[in-house]
Design a protein around this nucleic acid. Structure first.
Length: 963
DNA sequence: TAATGGTAGGGGAGGAAAATTCAACCCTAG
DNA sequence: TACTGCTAGGGTTGAATATTCCTCCCCTAC
């Protein structure tokens, strides 16, 4: 899910400041419920229920398990077991589902091909060791022939894949071992319920159709561990015990988990029983948040330290990654918290690891608290898995591409294409040479054309024409493939008839399908045909369950089709062929130019139309056309006409489609535009923005919100003055320091380690500084680094002014509003307003609203260290001295009024803090517990922290009134 | 090490190089 | 008349500052 970021979960700010720590224990505002008194003695924990929202836990089922009590353990383990095997299954006459079976297949051996050297025949047989592919390529000496090197074929295929291909097995499909063709084996290889031996040629693989399209009822275990770190240290398996493990077991397709438990540890003895638990539950899939990078290695290492020899085996783990989140979605933070907020609208607490030890060492109440927290960490990944239908989509993808499900998480895109290629080649009696593209990776090829953008604000409808699956359809139309490519020397030698050859715009020659049909086009045809079927079925399907499966399938097919082109162009890949990829793009370039020309030539007043059409922009496979008409309906009509007309000029199956109308349309530059998106003339579907700040993850929320709001006002409300006013208010708020810190947090990805950067930059330098402060909480490669820009000496570089938001909050460091105005919001705003407003710069950025209020500079640096703070009058801020500690002589008369002000100020801030506190309690799922969360991703957290500080200051001021 | 889909393009920031401004100094005329 | 003190103004020089251009980096579109 996240390559390294634990979010704030096991990380956080440096040791909490005194005020922060105090408030965690303090009950804040009047009206906040007090925690109940510790309900039970520690010995009774066993039967205590855990408070959690109802959707998550049925109260009677929630169990805190004391692992030390072996007798209860045994009884519970039995409840988690899989159903017993039916007796007749072993005899081969039952098809019960829901059991785990390990089948050892015998007789399948690795092999590869070489071309037979001249002078050798079927009689010349010699044996080679299994890894001889490499030796043959380097060259060997053969008696009578001298030293020779060979090009090998299919010598580097993963053995598992080789086996699956040859047995027609795809990932996630059903395999039958016919009765009588297997032998029951002793259960020594695995912890499965049944072990079999059989011969590979007896396996029967069933295509995923009809009855066999159903999925197996996977048992999914979601878990999370908590460790007791020592003060100020990130937990290390060599020292720190695992204190809690939360487990949730679900059957795929069922809404509720059937096992929920938390294993806790009272003292510091080692946790035993985890491996037993996993063995009994016997899950097919293990998931969790970042478990591959943290929880699993931690458990395994901890077991090693404690010398639990058997542990690392963990039964049969087939698959244990949830890295998919980062792979499939682009978010500005990948902490479990923000991912959940994004997809589920549900948040979790973010508890710093140092607090976890405190909770553990407290009483039964605090440990129960920790259990709740831990369980939620196991629960959210399960919810995410369901919500995003990962299991469906992965099974579908595995079936389509033929790779095992685990490859989809642990491997890249190319293995999927290779798998399909190998299968298809086998059908056609072709073998694939082992020519791994390696080394430089320098040789690249020309990509797509992006038409010049005629920037501006268009108040007439713009029709968008798109090629459907451009690159796949080019490969099909022109029969582009490895096996249809004619190298220049062969073109001369073979004397092929010119009418059966195609010369691509990039100069390569391919034979036409009549002579030899390409493999790649065939793969693509099947993929796209299957997608068409899936989409048609989707239209028919009513059952949401079935719809989910079909939608997953059509998506998988589309993605697979699109990655075929990428595979041929991957210079460092399994089978690169730049002749194919550069031919594909060259056709694409030709086609978009051709389309632009046709539209502008045909749709003219001379041609009998009311206006001259103009192509205002286009990228790769799309053109945006202004037909000159003023209604969406007319634009749609002309768009359809143009698409049909132009489609007719291309080789099948290349097809230009009318897709949508933008109206109005704000075109800023290449790859950057915004507009209202219409697919029917009555009502627009949505506001669509491409490439601009609203869709970028490296802008602060202030910019994102501001730009979004302006576009909303301009495009939807058509209220430019309103947008201008909004900008002015925002700038004024910013300069007056009325903007919430959470809106100013910028995040950027840390893509490599510190030394590898050639130039300094804000997020890299900050990460380095944070590492020096506290290595445990600092971001590492792959993480996203949040930062704000603080005030510093004039001329200081941005990388000297970046700071951790939490550090800024805790130490009262002033931010630099001028930087945000000049470097963050001004340019994006001007880009939007300049096409619409004359004097945009003057109007927006230089009015009276830009008068700044000076903020006191940090008092803890330089010369100010030696300054002594003097008291100021609470009325007029004048310096006061002597006996009077509150007011100057001037303000003395207003004593009553000013005191009231102080009191109401404190009350107000207390109310605010109380509200935020309650909000956080709701988020954590309990109104009776202290809030522990310190999430860097949560705006409420920043506001709560700030309110808390303001409140403390106001109270201090109130205390100065001395009657 | 193993394993790895692609190119095009905008835009921000840093940094080097080239350009400009500025202050200090020297010199000379008056 | 010779010499000094002073100023204005031109020229030179080296440093400071602003500008330009290029590259790195991130992220997005397709």
């Amino acid at each position: 899910m996240s390559s390294g970021g634990r979010g704030g979960k096991r990380r956080g700010p440096p040791a909490p400041s005194p005020s922060g720590a105090a408030a965690k224990r303090a009950q804040p505002s009047p009206g906040t419920p007090q925690p109940p008194p510790p309900a039970a003695a520690e010995e009774d924990m066993m039967d205590e229920d855990v408070f959690l929202d109802d959707a998550m836990l049925a109260e009677d089922e929630a169990v805190l398990l004391m692992v030390q009590r072996d007798e209860t353990l045994a009884s519970r383990l039995s409840r988690w077991k899989r159903p017993a095997l039916p007796a007749d299954l072993v005899a081969g006459c039952s098809r019960a589902v829901g059991h785990s079976i390990c089948c050892q297949v015998h007789g399948f051996e690795p092999y590869f091909y070489i071309s037979c050297p001249s002078g050798m025949g079927p009689d010349d047989i010699f044996t080679l060791s299994p890894n001889s592919g490499g030796i043959l390529e380097k060259g060997i000496t053969i008696e009578g022939l001298g030293s020779k090197s060979f090009l090998t074929y299919e010598s580097n295929i993963l053995f598992a894949l080789r086996f699956m291909i040859d047995c027609n097995i795809v990932g996630g499909n059903w395999i039958e071992v016919p009765a009588g063709k297997y032998r029951k084996a002793a259960r020594i290889m695995s912890y499965c319920q049944l072990e079999l031996d059989c011969v590979y040629s007896d396996l029967m693989s069933h295509a995923a159709e009809g009855e066999y399209s159903k999925m197996a009822p996977f048992r999914i275990l979601s878990f999370d561990i908590e460790c007791a770190g020592r003060k100020g240290h990130f937990p290390e398996p060599t020292h720190d015990p695992v204190i809690q493990i939360a487990n949730l077991v679900t059957l795929q397709g069922e809404g509720q988990p059937f096992v929920r438990n938390v294993m806790t540890l009272k003292s510091c003895s080692p946790i035993v029983g985890v491996d037993d638990f996993i063995r009994e539950v016997d899950p097919d899939i293990i998931i969790g948040y970042n478990i591959c990078k943290f929880d699993l290695p931690y458990l395994i290492e901890r077991a090693e330290v404690l010398k639990i020899a058997e542990f690392p085996i963990l039964g049969r783990i087939r698959n244990s990654r949830v890295r998919a989140m980062q792979r499939d979605y682009k978010l500005s933070s990948y902490s479990l918290n923000s991912v959940s907020a994004h997809f589920l609208g549900e948040q979790k607490e973010d508890v710093h690891h140092s607090i976890i030890s405190d909770l553990q060492n407290g009483n039964s109440e605090t440990r129960r608290r920790l259990a709740v927290y831990c369980l939620k960490d196991a629960y959210l990944p399960q919810r995410l898995l369901d919500k995003l239908m990962y299991i469906y989509n992965y099974v579908e993808m595995a079936r389509v591409t033929g790779v095992p499900i685990s490859f989809l998480l642990s491997r890249g895109q190319s293995i999927k294409v290779l798998s399909q290629l190998l299968r298809k080649a086998k059908q056609k009696n072709l073998v694939i040479p082992n020519i791994k593209g390696q080394g430089s990776g320098q040789d690249t090829f020309e990509g797509a054309t992006v038409l010049e953008a005629r920037a501006g604000f268009y108040e007439k409808p713009i029709a968008t024409l798109d090629f459907a699956s451009l690159y796949p359809s080019i490969m099909m139309a022109y029969n582009l493939c490895y096996c249809t490519l004619v190298p220049p020397e062969d073109a001369r030698k073979l004397n092929l008839p010119p009418e059966s050859l195609n010369r691509t715009p990039s100069g390569e020659i391919f034979v036409k399908p009549e002579l030899q049909k390409g493999i790649l086009p065939e793969i693509l045809e099947e993929l796209l045909a299957a997608r068409k079927r899936a989409k048609a079925d989707l239209k028919e399907a009513k059952d949401p369950f079935e719809r989910a499966v079909l939608d997953g399938r059509q998506l998988a097919l589309k993605i697979s089709a699109n990655s075929v082109y990428g595979f041929t162009g991957a210079a460092v890949g399994q089978l690169p062929c730049l002749e194919i990829s550069s031919s594909v793009t060259s056709y694409g370039r030709q086609m978009i130019e051709h389309t632009k020309k046709l539209v502008e030539d045909k749709f003219t007043t001379l041609g009998g139309y009311e206006h001259n059409a103009e192509v205002v922009y286009g990228d790769t496979d799309s053109v945006m056309v202004q037909f000159g008409v003023s209604t969406v309906e007319e634009a749609m009509k002309l768009g359809r006409e143009a698409a049909d007309y132009i489609s007719g000029t291309f080789t099948k199956p290349i097809k230009l489609e009318f897709e949508k109308v933008y109206f109005p349309y704000l075109l800023i530059s290449k790859k950057r535009y915004a507009g209202l998106y219409w697919t029917n003339p009555e009502k627009f579907d949505k506001m669509d923005t491409k490439g601009i700040e609203t869709v970028r993850r490296d802008n602060c929320l202030l910019v994102k919100n501001l730009v979004t709001e302006c576009l909303h006002k301009i495009l939807i409300d058509r209220d430019v003055p309103g947008a201008v006013q909004y900008v002015k208010n925002t700038i004024s708020d910013l300069l007056m320091n009325r903007v919430d810190l959470s809106l100013l947090v910028i995040t950027k990805g840390l893509t490599k380690t510190g030394e590898d950067y050639a130039v300094k930059s804000a997020h890299v330098e900050l990460a380095e500084r944070m590492r020096k402060r506290d290595a445990a909480t600092a971001p590492t490669v792959g993480d996203r680094v949040p930062y704000v820009i603080i005030k510093a000496a004039k001329g200081a570089k941005a990388y000297e002014k970046s700071e951790d938001p939490i550090y800024v909050l805790d130490n009262n460091i002033p931010i630099d509003p001028q930087y945000y105005l000049e470097n963050q919001i001004s340019k994006p705003l001007l880009r939007i307003f300049e096409p619409i407003l004359k004097n945009a710069s003057k109007e927006l950025l230089h009015g009276s609203h830009t008068r700044a209020v000076s903020i006191s500079t940090p008092s803890n640096s330089g010369i100010m260290k030696f300054a002594k703070k003097q008291l100021t009058c609470l009325g007029c801020k004048a310096l006061i001295s002597g006996a009077n500690q509150t007011l100057c002589s001037h303000c003395k008369g207003r004593e009553a009024e000013l005191y009231c002000k102080s009191v109401s100020n404190v009350l107000e801030l207390e109310m605010l803090f109380g509200r935020l506190w309650t909000q956080c309690q709701e988020c954590q799922g309990s109104l009776h517990q202290d809030v522990l969360c310190t999430s860097r991703d949560c705006p409420i957290f920043y506001r709560r922290r700030k309110a808390q500080k303001d409140m403390a200051e106001a109270r201090l001021q109130l205390d100065r009134w001395d009657f």
